[in-house]
Design a protein around this nucleic acid. Structure first.
Lengths: 108, 108
DNA sequence: TTCGATGATCGACGATCATCGAACATTGAC
DNA sequence: GTCAATGTTCGATGATCGTCGATCATCGAA
């Protein structure tokens, strides 16, 4: 239970507990990789609604959950709206160069 | 058909035709990542039989096929025996820094 | 040519995955 | 309190995956 007045919101793992295989699995899917690239393109966060992909809403929520569990992105709730952003700083500490390299490889 | 006297052997894709997602999928499995690390640890190639993992022979063959199709490794047949090696040089040209970064992240 | 060794392939299985629509929970607005 | 908006969760479905034993194809040796 979350304390009163505090949004529970989705949970985020500590990066220490995230396995490399988990991150790779999360990135090894076209839609998710696309989302990560999308987030990397802009600095800061992006509104849920601005992620428009040709998939159902529940599917998007599913993919975001997997990315979240892999420690790749952070979910912030503000009222009824959500904003997502990359955990690139933390990720760099745990998996140095990984995110940058993958994104660079994808841009070719 | 292969010319007479030439072993057909397994096929290897041109790296230009390999997608990043395919490589990531291939690496996103514990056993396969372990094999890649094993191969990276030593220079050059490794005999099939020296890859001893707690899996059935057909399963190992299956994993090697996936790694091969992802352009990650090369299969050389010599008589009845096989030798596998990383395509690290070529891979560096297609996906710069990817293999090295992943292996580095795994060693932590 | 026959035989044994070595991998590749096949068929089957249980598990996991991506996907969807529907139902639910939470929040802000009226 | 009621309502609409926004994401999450649930249940189901079809596809893919990892795994295995069994079979097959290829090659060197006897």
């Amino acid at each position: 239970m979350a304390p009163r007045g505090v949004s529970k919101g989705p949970e985020h793992p500590a990066l220490d507990e995230v396995e490399l295989v988990t991150v790779l699995s999360a990135l090894a899917e076209p839609t998710r990789l696309r989302i990560v690239c999308m987030l990397a393109a802009l600095e800061g966060e992006r509104a849920w609604k601005d992620i428009d992909l040709p998939i159902a809403q529940s599917t998007l929520s599913h993919h975001l959950k997997i990315l979240r569990n892999a420690g790749l992105l952070l979910n912030r709730t503000e009222g009824t709206r959500c904003f997502v952003s990359l955990r690139d700083q933390e990720l760099e500490g745990r998996f140095p160069g990984l995110l940058e390299t993958v994104l660079n490889c994808r841009d070719r």
